[in-house]
Nucleic acid binder design. Sequence first.
DNA 1: GTTTCGGTTCTTTTT
DNA 2: GAACCGAAAC
Length: 647
Amino acid sequence: MEPLPSRIDFAAELNAEQLAAVQAGDGPVLIIAAAGTGKTRTLVYRVAYLIEQGTLPARILLLTFTNRAAREMVDRARQLVGPCVNAMTGGTFHSVSNRLLRRHADLLGYRKSYTILDSEDNRKLMRDVLDQMGLNTKEFPKPDVLLSLFSYAVNTEEDVEEVLHERFKHHPAEISDMVQAFDAWSKRKFDMSAMDFDDLLINAIRLLESKPALLEEYQERFQYILVDEYQDTNAIQARFVDMLAAKHKNLLVVGDDFQSIYAWRGADYHNIIEFPDQYEGTQVFKLETNYRSIPEILEVANQCIAGNPQQFQKTLKATRASSAQPIFVRPHDGGQQARYILDRVRGLQRNGMALKDMAVLYRSHFSSMELQLELQREGIPFVITSGIRFFEQAHIKDVTCLLRLIHSPTDELAFMRLVCLLPRVGDRTARKIWGILRGRFNVSDAHSRLELMNALPKASRERWQPVHELLEVVDAEKLGERPFEIVNRFVDEFYDHYALDHFENYHRRIDDLHELGTYTSQFNSVEMFLNEMALLSNTDGKSGEEEEDSLKLSTVHQAKGLEWKVVFVLWLTEGQFPSGRSLEEDPLASEERRLFYVATTRAEDMLWMFAPKSRRQRDGGIQFYNPSRFIGELDPSVYHEDHVGYI
DNA sequence: GTTTCGGTTCTTTTT
DNA sequence: GAACCGAAAC
């Protein structure tokens, strides 16, 4: 059979660096792609190239860092080669693991309908475990602390006990108690057939390790594996990739060690640095030609990262015409910083720039408080990629718990949360009822529903009545196939009332819930919705909203991979950026410096950097701040300092 | 014995 | 804002 004539003129649409990487032969490939050098473009064309060369899309696996990145790449590949790319497997490590486990989790002793615990569920569970063990005392580490350490140990594949010894050298609490807590918590999760984010990864690996036939099937299937943002993979993620790629060895990884910003959750940029050593015969390509930013911005980026040793040396080469220098400003405080930004935003708008072409970036969510207030007051529309994910907000979780319970009668956490919405029902009462129901509430079972109704305190029965009636018709009206209807009815007949009583910002929350209803309407089963929901983060975006013209406020972490014409970076002061806590762990602040590098390289045309001089403290005192070392490390000739008077 | 409410404190980064 | 703690209310 004649090969199809190529419809894509690769040589015309890519530069020489990109073309070489796209047309690389089989075997391991490492692409070091500096910021703004067309990394996504290269990956997309690589996919197109593989398909044109005759690879079946179903045999390609694309692993990305966010669902948004996966979707973007698949969409762009589809535009290039057509709808056949839909057969490709693409997503985050977590979502791909999840898909694997939904098919085979029973082999590990889980139900296939296992629930996914978000961080709040996990915290509640841990607190419960500690309570039961009598360890929830002042002397003992808090659930959050334990969870983050356990997670770190799991993600780096280090021994839990060793990590604990390291961290709690001088702590009065017994390490053995903590290890016991770890075991009890793990068992508890398994018994209730629940997995947290880390479990998704380790169980996917355990599955492949314990079932050689299955491993072989997937190894055979994924003839080509592409991994984006490889510098941010951790030990288990790297192992997952290695296992799947072991047969064909057609593993292509893309990344930039300069942009490695997730060491704190176990990411190890040695994965990318040592990739050529690990895979013999690796072809290495470098993308250094930057199309995004003006040379003045790249100069700042290059200078700042030069302070970090032992990385793949590379310099961003500018292609764009020279323009204005980045601007450094020292406002008096956060309020003045906010007013200055507002002023500039207005000015840019008058010159015809859209709000959506501007972004404000910061180290931690907290840093944007004053600006949020100011924007609100001045009526400038903005969107925040807030600290809490959309699906983790209290009111969203309250409502989705009903769906969880319908889907999984043994979801204790969902049950507890749901009944605690009722008056006179708190933790104790809820637990008692759960005991009466023998750890199971089956909405399809009339007896079960009545049992619940009778077990409720008298004062709450009336309130439960509408939910009771809703549950009665779930089966008859096949509501399981229309989750949005359950959501809408539950909100109208029950939750609206609750929200009115409990939330100051009732309207905003109800708006969110209507949005939830709309979002849910694209699913035709409760199960499909739940599968999606647990792994969606707020950067993944709700497609409808993107047309709105609004200013973006985001942490630098969440801004990764994005770009704007104008970028404002807030609170570049010692203690904020680099953050005080990070300095305790790493006095050289190399990861924070990479974070600053990521921030600066988001900007195309204009970059503003702020270092407020002071901040008012809670007790009324004033704390003074020095500008960030990252500013100090720059040659003052590469930026312009704008002096502000009182505004 | 439980729930609720009011005051206090703290805020790194996320799939 | 939200998590925690202690005191008041049911």
